[in-house]
């Protein structure tokens, strides 16, 4: 975070970027913590670029535990059936849903959609 100096204050865009970064990292931090605790994976090996299946070796059963923890933590319902169908039909890649930065973006979208409809 840049210091609270006059130069930063003159460029409010930096603040917006910073706030956006905070929100994103907060989702990632929560998800990474959930994965680390659920699957006994060292937290420091989990990065936004990690693929939950290919890199972290999480299987479908462990992913159910993760999905439950995410559903609960964010008050959403990860549409796992829809995603699986899309991947099976070749309409999406696993990277779109299971690389953690993408998973976090999906979570943020679902949270935003829920907030908007509330």
């Amino acid at each position: 975070m840049p210091g609270h100096d006059a130069r930063t204050l003159r460029r409010p865009g930096i603040y917006l970027q910073y706030i956006k970064g905070l929100v994103m990292s907060s989702t990632f931090d929560q998800v990474a913590t959930i994965i680390a605790e659920t699957c006994d994976i060292p937290r420091d090996t989990i990065t936004p670029e990690s693929h939950a299946i290919d890199d972290l070796g999480i299987d479908s059963l462990d992913f159910l535990d993760i999905a439950f923890a995410i559903d609960k933590a964010f008050g959403i319902k990860l549409p796992l059936e829809k995603w699986t169908q899309e991947v099976n039909d070749g309409k999406a890649t696993t990277e779109q849903y299971f690389v953690l930065k993408n998973l976090c973006a999906r979570i943020d979208e679902l949270v935003a959609a829920k907030t908007a409809s509330a």
Binding site: L64, A67, F68, D71, K72, K77, L78, P79, L80, E81, K82, T84
Partner: peptide
């Protein structure tokens, strides 16, 4: 306890 997508508890 929870109704998820494709799973339930």
């Amino acid at each position: 306890v929870h109704e998820g997508s494709g799973y339930a508890i």
